[in-house]
């Protein structure tokens, strides 16, 4: 248990860091983590680094242009499905 009832310890925060970054914690847990991060520079820097890594990876991975002819190909696939009898 945490020594201070309104916030987690470093270890308790560490265990929840991934979920906190993903905003997957319940509101009460979120507040407990946030209060710890406000007071602990080491955990705050770990959180900032992890959040920045995920932001940067999202940014790089989402740089995609779908091929211009994809919609036409998909339409043809749908037409094919409609004209092909289902397999028994």
């Amino acid at each position: 248990m945490s020594d201070q009832p309104d916030r987690y310890t470093c270890e308790e925060v560490f265990r929840r860091l991934d979920d906190y970054v993903d905003r997957e914690l319940a509101e009460e847990e979120t507040q407990m983590v946030r209060r710890h991060l406000d007071a602990c520079a080491v955990c705050a820097s770990e959180y900032a680094f992890e959040a920045d890594v995920l932001d940067k990876l999202r940014g790089k991975l989402r740089r995609i242009d779908a091929p211009a002819g994809l919609l036409a190909k998909v339409s043809r696939a749908i037409e094919r499905a409609r004209s092909t009898p289902p397999e028994k």
Binding site: P67, L70, K73, V74, R76, A77, I78, R80, A81, R82, P86
Partner: peptide, 18 residues
């Protein structure tokens, strides 16, 4: 890769129609 990705989307569209 792009070719396999296009094939995958088309296959999914085919199955979605079904």
């Amino acid at each position: 890769n792009r070719n396999d990705a296009e094939d995958l989307v088309q296959e999914a569209a085919f199955q979605a129609c079904r």
